[in-house]
């Protein structure tokens, strides 16, 4: 059985603000499924429909086989949810927060301690500190503990790593990997494209619409062109010139390099180097490069 099934989901705010526009996907049991897209893509709306917080305006969705409209009570006792904003009680201590949520979900910390043990040991030294005084990374971990404490079947994490530094992000994804091994289905959203590779499958979303759903590897494989990375002594000038170069299909900055693809598949990239040199650029380096999820996303926009 699929852990989550979304069918032609539509969510409209007010008269005409379509946040989710006919989106369908399904999440298999025990997988990490990523909703990848920028702010305002509709990720949070999808999460809220799936966690029964919002009613869909069209289509349907099930979580663990239960309908999000009819069976909201069953869903509420089966899912864990971590909203995008830090949503714990800032004036309660770490332990009080955890204890509160455990009790609200009809369980005790002891009962499911094995699930949160690896995360909680890091929090334990601060267990008497008020949640409001924790660091960003620690808050994240506490929120995850609170969402996990009742052993949910499906865990919904809405942008857990937004605004978190790369080191803490890396740690967080390692935790999710461990949870996956405990057979918890995880649906997670992120605006960071590089995190897509950490998911088993991803859905790329922009402006309420689904761009693509597949494994990261398949999405990368389906990229139609050969991609090159290029750099020169003056990157800003290089980008400007590439924009106006009629052989170029797409070009954009990508870290240290710029990524480009050419209109003609048989185009010899050496020609481009020559052309750029005539434009006054130096130290030009042009190499074939691997496609990343970010390239795919840009392609789909």
């Amino acid at each position: 059985m699929e852990a989550v099934n979304v069918k032609n989901l539509v969510k409209i705010y007010g008269k005409d603000k379509t946040a989710v526009d006919d989106i369908s996907f399904s999440v298999n049991q025990g997988e990490i499924f990523g909703l990848i897209g920028p702010d305002g893509a509709g990720k949070t709306s999808i999460f809220r429909v799936l966690t029964t917080l919002l009613l869909p305006d069209g289509g349907s969705a099930t979580v663990d086989g239960f309908d999000v409209v009819k069976d909201y009570k069953q869903i509420r006792s089966r899912v864990g949810y971590m909203p995008g904003k830090f949503s714990l009680y800032q004036d309660l201590s770490v332990e009080e927060n955890l204890n509160f949520f455990a009790t609200i979900f009809n369980t005790t910390i002891a009962e499911n301690y094995h699930l949160i043990k690896d995360i909680y040991v890091q929090l334990e030294p601060f267990k008497n500190r008020r949640a409001g005084q924790l660091s960003g990374g620690m808050k994240q971990k506490l929120a995850l503990c609170c969402a996990l404490i009742h052993k949910p079947v499906v865990l919904f994490l809405d942008e857990p790593t937004t605004g978190v530094d790369p080191v803490s992000r890396k740690e967080f994804w390692e935790i999710l990997q461990q949870l996956k091994e405990q057979n918890i289905t995880i649906v997670v959203s992120t605006p960071y494209m590089d995190e897509a590779n950490r998911c088993d499958r991803i859905a790329m979303i922009q402006s309420g619409q689904l761009l693509s759903v597949d494994t990261p590897a398949n999405i990368i494989k389906s990229y139609p062109e050969q991609l090159y990375a290029i750099k020169a002594n003056n990157m800003h000038a290089l980008l400007k010139i590439l924009h106006e170069y009629n052989q170029v299909k797409s070009s954009y900055a990508f870290g240290e390099f710029a990524h480009i693809s050419f209109k003609e598949p048989k185009f010899n990239p050496d020609q481009a180097v020559t052309y750029l040199e005539t434009k006054g650029l130096q130290d030009i380096e042009l190499i074939k490069t691997e496609v990343t999820i970010e390239d795919c996303f840009i392609k789909l926009l």
Partner: peptide, 13 residues
Amino acid sequence: ETGTMEILLVSPF
């Protein structure tokens, strides 16, 4: 406002 209501709603309480 703080979003804790969301979590309370998504609970069996």
